[in-house]
Design a protein around this nucleic acid. Sequence first.
DNA 1: TTGTACGCGTTATCAT
DNA 2: ATGATAACGCGTACAA
Lengths: 331, 331
Amino acid sequence: MNVSGSTASRALADDPRIGAATRLAVKAAAIEMNYVPNAAARSLRARRTRALGLLLPDLRDPVHGQVASAFEQEARAQGYGVMVVAGERDPGRERLALRIFAEHGTDGVAVVSGLLSPRELRDRVDPDRLVLVWPDHRSLPRRDGARTPGVIQTDDASGVRAAVEHLIANGCRRIAYVEGGVRASNTIRAETVASTLRAHGERFPMQTFPAPVDAWRDPGQLAARIAADLPEALVCYDDQLALGLMDALRQHGIRIPDDMQIVGFDGIPFAAIANPRLTTVAVPSAELGRAAATSLIRAIHDGALPEGVLLPVEVVVRQSTGSVAALADQP
Amino acid sequence: MNVSGSTASRALADDPRIGAATRLAVKAAAIEMNYVPNAAARSLRARRTRALGLLLPDLRDPVHGQVASAFEQEARAQGYGVMVVAGERDPGRERLALRIFAEHGTDGVAVVSGLLSPRELRDRVDPDRLVLVWPDHRSLPRRDGARTPGVIQTDDASGVRAAVEHLIANGCRRIAYVEGGVRASNTIRAETVASTLRAHGERFPMQTFPAPVDAWRDPGQLAARIAADLPEALVCYDDQLALGLMDALRQHGIRIPDDMQIVGFDGIPFAAIANPRLTTVAVPSAELGRAAATSLIRAIHDGALPEGVLLPVEVVVRQSTGSVAALADQP
DNA sequence: TTGTACGCGTTATCAT
DNA sequence: ATGATAACGCGTACAA
């Protein structure tokens, strides 16, 4: 079996001009010598790598893990590899990530919960091969349902509004918000809690407990401040914070939902099995990751950004906002 | 400013033969036109991509997320990109992953909790550029402290033994084990529980509750079987399973630790804030990921595998094994 | 139907 | 101190 390079190349690519016999022989030989095409050479010629870049803050937290998982799965199903870089919520690291992607020549980039301005992003990578998931820069997130091409978001405001209305229906008046850092996503949630309260006739300004982005790791001080001036209900920036606070408040003898009700955000798996089970605004993280991959791959093929996506969220009522029904809920 | 390709290449590589003036000018121009070297071309010539392949079962679970995070961080610090593929605990998918890595020409591969036999792995990728983390094939995990080159493990048996001894010290006699699938890692934990009981004079065979690998998602049936024949203490395959069971057993009115004590494995963050807080055998997942990256990169540079690593684990006693001290523990 | 020759961007070698 | 050239492995336009 001796054929020229081109014949081999064509046979492996199922070029119809190659005879069936030759094709089979070549393929057999390829398997025999466990040949794998060299992606570097192929990329050099084809000007594409069939690899995508995924930039996210952290692989450890449940939400981004879920997004990354779905993104990778969808990409793999469509024949793309995924290069992952954690930006660690640091603009410098995010810039480095983009550079890594550029050097490796990824065909497209998805940025999840990114801090860099859309302006700078589009300046650093081909804007027609860039999708933004949960952009966390003040210039992008929308309270309304507006969709920007290449931007994938969830309808956080609607979810938070529904959650607050659920608390109001439960008879809560003094509803406070616990911050998670000072990013745009936090601002939207805080403002939505406040505006929903106003819309329901609450006259006093909403109470806000400030907290850094990783307060859930060590919520002791925060819990003490809350315990010292206990509201009827707490809306937390996210589930991790809510779960950390539930634990810390327990030290102060505060019973949930009896003494205070509490709502999280994200819908991470542990929220469902916490004790008490945590009411939360659940976001479809897996769909988000999948949508990001499909949008990005479509953008690569079409050379232009597909329409933006706005995914719905859902309030999942559980024991922490303690209606009798919720307390009785079965697994 | 007009120089030849070679000069530009050398200037950017800080080749000492290039004059300072030229070097600066070239670098300025590179930034100006935001030039990034093409990794494909570079790889083609240099025969290395400065990319690593990371194969793990799932990006969603806290333990592997942690490992992936540390691996990526360490790799990035040493100038390597990371291509991640989830094997989804399916041998076919694992093979596909290795193929993806081969095509993209990764300089080395780390396989975490892989199911494929070491034999097959070494057959499919260059064995001198392969590290195995937590190999989960029956031919590899060791009960003793033996180290195999390129293999990174934790001393699970010691941890489980210590956990069981802790339960015995608490006065528990009827200690049962809850399985997590039928993999090698499960076998080691089960056998260690049994042998520790025997070593402490327990004469009846240890009770085992069989469960599939993802029983924690829907632990209802499993919990019913356990509640029907309640042991004094439960050692669970991992924390997720233990936490899921704690929730499900609560439905049966079982109080932990009063009616039964429970121990998990892994030391995921949520174990520390569950209610009751979960006693667990904590593994150093971040160190594991970091060790994997450093070992792999060293292997790439040396062309040979570095010595294996065996990391210690630690029993973290909390409320679920309820000594009075543990119940009083502060955050 | 198959083989030949060229070019993708980079760097090592050799020449100037 | 710098420039010219070849080579990495693949895919394709063109020739046979």
